[in-house]
Amino acid sequence: MSANHNRPLSDVEIRVKALESLLVEKGLVDPAAVDALIDTYEHKVGPRNGAHVVAKAWMDPAYKARLLADGTAAIAELGYSGIQGEDMVVIESTPETHNVIVCTLCSCYPWPTLGLPPVWFKSAPYRSRVVSDPRGVLKEFGLELPEKMQVRVWDSTAELRYMVLPERPAGTEGMTEEQLAALVTRDSMIGVARVAVPGQEGART
């Protein structure tokens, strides 16, 4: 991934280097701190954290009740707290109601549980349309919902960060928490997918 030094820097690369070098020279930014933050969010924080939360909620009804009542505290029990997850809300999807999350004004996203957001979540097409045509958007993700099911779209315009507690799929009754966590995808916790058991109908292709 290192830059090819035979190629001229792009405009955006020049701007970033100019800014960082000035801030470092002024003693305002420590490049080692920048490196550590990159490493943490590229390699250590991600949707496996959220999958752990979901699997525990599926296994433990008391935990699930705490999670839905006070998402911040229940997620903190598992150690996934901090920046962009300071105030968490967890929304449960059921056979009757499907939930999906968006931030139409910017791209707010629960970093401690889901990591940094994918490009599509931050993109104008998703943010513009999921509020007005959620069923059409979900179809683009391969999720077609029956008419009788209600769709609830949550627009996180404030300082709360949301994640979906997806439905536990049928046929997983004997699974361990670790096996369940392995089934839970990032997209199911945003609400653009359901959790499927590999090989069963509804699995993402």
Binding site: S10, K17, L23, V29, L37, E42, G115
Partner: peptide
């Protein structure tokens, strides 16, 4: 999808908290 697509994205992200 990778977490970052370009090295400059890493640097911008990493500067967020220090700035």
């Amino acid at each position: 999808e990778p977490v970052f697509h370009h090295e400059w994205e890493r640097r911008v992200f990493g500067m967020f908290l220090p700035v």
